[in-house]
Amino acid sequence: KELVLVLYDYQEKSPREVTVKKGDILTLLNSTNKDAWKVEVDDRQGFIPAAYLKKL
């Protein structure tokens, strides 16, 4: 599985998104959309803007 590093805090703005903190390391589920990547956070799945993430 692929991991990503969170570069900036992000507060979810819709039910399809998830809230993350800078420095979190998350499982990347889908990065086919260049604008928003799907990740898993504490058994929740949701989207975060790709600009907030860096592949490890």
Rank of each mutant, 00 (worst) to 15 (best):
Pro49Thr: 04
Pro49Gly: 03
Glu12Ser: 15
Lys54Tyr: 12
Lys34Phe: 10
Ala50Ile: 09
Gly23Glu: 02
Ser14Val: 05
Lys22Thr: 06
Leu3Cys: 13
Gln45Thr: 13
Glu12Ala: 15
Val6Ile: 03
Leu29Arg: 03
Val41Tyr: 09
Asn33Ser: 11
Pro15Ile: 08
Glu40Arg: 10
Val6Pro: 00
Asn33Gln: 10
Ile25Cys: 06
Val41His: 09
Leu26His: 05
Glu12Asp: 06
Lys34Leu: 10
Gly46Thr: 09
Ala36Pro: 02
Gln11Cys: 12
Pro15Trp: 08
Ser14Arg: 08
Arg44Asn: 05
Glu2Lys: 10
Asn30Asp: 15
Ala36Ile: 15
Lys38Glu: 15
Gln11Leu: 12
Lys21Arg: 12
Ile25Ala: 00
Glu2Gly: 11
Lys54Gly: 05
Val41Asn: 08
Leu28Gln: 01
Tyr8Asn: 12
Leu26Met: 03
Thr19Asp: 04
Leu7Thr: 03
Tyr10Val: 02
Val41Phe: 10
Tyr8Pro: 00
Arg44Cys: 07
Pro49Tyr: 05
Thr19Ala: 06
Ala51Arg: 14
Phe47Met: 07
Ala50Ser: 14
Lys21Ile: 05
Glu17Phe: 08
Asp9Leu: 04
Asn33Trp: 08
Pro15Val: 09
Ile48Leu: 12
Leu5Phe: 06
Leu26Arg: 01
Tyr52Ala: 09
Ile25Lys: 03
Asp35Cys: 14
Ala36Asn: 12
Leu28His: 01
Asp43Asn: 14
Tyr52Ser: 05
Asn33Asp: 13
Glu40Asn: 05
Glu12Leu: 14
Leu5Ile: 13
Ser14Ile: 06
Ala36His: 15
Thr19Leu: 04
Ala50Pro: 10
Lys22Pro: 03
Lys55Pro: 12
Asp24Met: 15
Gly23Ile: 02
Asp35Ser: 10
Ala36Cys: 15
Glu2Trp: 12
Leu28Met: 03
Thr19Val: 04
Leu5Val: 10
Thr32Gln: 12
Tyr10Thr: 00
Leu28Pro: 00
Trp37Cys: 05
Thr19Arg: 05
Thr27Met: 10
Gln45Glu: 12
Leu56Asp: 03
Ala51Gln: 14
Val6Phe: 01
Lys1Pro: 12
Asp24Ile: 05
Trp37Leu: 02
Lys34Ile: 11
Gln45Ala: 12
Gly23Gln: 07
Lys54Val: 13
Lys13His: 08
Arg16Cys: 15
Tyr10Met: 01
Ala36Met: 15
Lys55Phe: 07
Tyr8Glu: 13
Asn33Ala: 09
Ala50Phe: 04
Leu5Ala: 04
Leu56Lys: 02
Pro49Leu: 06
Leu56Tyr: 08
Val6Cys: 07
Val20Arg: 00
Tyr52Leu: 12
Thr19Pro: 03
Leu5Thr: 04
Leu7Arg: 04
Leu29Gly: 01
Tyr10His: 04
Asp43Glu: 11
Lys38Tyr: 15
Asn33Pro: 05
Leu5Gln: 07
Leu3Trp: 14
Ala50Glu: 05
Leu29Phe: 03
Leu53Glu: 03
Ile48Ser: 01
Lys1His: 11
Leu26Val: 13
Lys38Phe: 15
Glu12Asn: 07
Gln11Ile: 14
Ala50Gly: 07
Glu2Met: 13
Lys55Ile: 13
Tyr10Ser: 02
Thr27Asp: 03
Ala51Tyr: 13
Thr32Glu: 14
Gln45Pro: 06
Asp24Phe: 06
Val18Glu: 01
Leu53Gly: 04
Leu28Ala: 02
Ile48Asp: 03
Leu3Glu: 06
Ser14Gln: 09
Lys55Glu: 06
Lys55Arg: 11
Val6Lys: 00
Asn33Val: 05
Val20Met: 02
Arg44Trp: 15
Leu26Ala: 06
Thr32Asn: 12
Leu3Asp: 02
Lys22Cys: 08
Leu7Tyr: 02
Gln11Pro: 04
Gln45Val: 15
Tyr52Thr: 05
Lys22Arg: 12
Ala51Trp: 13
Val4Thr: 02
Tyr8Gln: 14
Pro15Gly: 11
Glu12Gln: 14
Arg44Ile: 08
Lys1Tyr: 13
Leu53Cys: 12
Val18Asn: 03
Ser31Asn: 07
Thr27Val: 15
Leu7Glu: 02
Glu40Trp: 09
Glu17Arg: 06
Phe47Arg: 03
Lys21Thr: 07
Lys13Ala: 10
Lys13Asn: 10
Val4Ala: 07
Glu40Thr: 07
Val39Glu: 01
Leu3Ile: 08
Val18Lys: 02
Leu29Val: 11
Glu12Ile: 13
Ser14Glu: 09
Lys21His: 10
Ser31Ile: 04
Ala51Ser: 14
Gln45Ser: 10
Val6Asn: 00
Ala50Thr: 09
Glu12Met: 15
Leu28Thr: 01
Leu5Asn: 01
Pro15Leu: 09
Leu56Phe: 08
Asp35Leu: 13
Thr32Ile: 10
Val6Gly: 00
Lys34Cys: 14
Leu3Val: 07
Gly23Arg: 01
Ser31Pro: 04
Ser31Cys: 14
Phe47Tyr: 14
Lys21Phe: 10
Asn30Ala: 10
Leu26Ser: 00
Lys21Leu: 05
Tyr10Phe: 06
Val18Trp: 11
Gln11Glu: 13
Asp9Arg: 02
Ser14Met: 07
Ala51Cys: 15
Lys21Val: 06
Thr27Pro: 09
Gly23Cys: 08
Tyr10Ala: 01
Glu2Leu: 12
Gly23Asn: 05
Lys13Tyr: 06
Val20Leu: 03
Ser14His: 12
Glu40His: 06
Arg44Met: 07
Glu12Pro: 13
Thr32Asp: 15
Val20Gly: 04
Glu12Trp: 10
Trp37Asp: 00
Arg16Ala: 14
Glu17Ser: 08
Asp9Thr: 05
Ile48Met: 11
Lys54His: 11
Lys38Ser: 08
Leu5Met: 10
Pro49Val: 05
Leu53Tyr: 01
Asp35Glu: 12
Val4Glu: 01
Ser14Leu: 08
Asn33Glu: 10
Asp24Thr: 11
Trp37Arg: 00
Leu29Asp: 00
Ala51Pro: 09
Leu29Ile: 14
Asp42Leu: 12
Glu40Tyr: 07
Thr27Tyr: 11
Thr19Trp: 05
Tyr10Lys: 00
Leu5Pro: 00
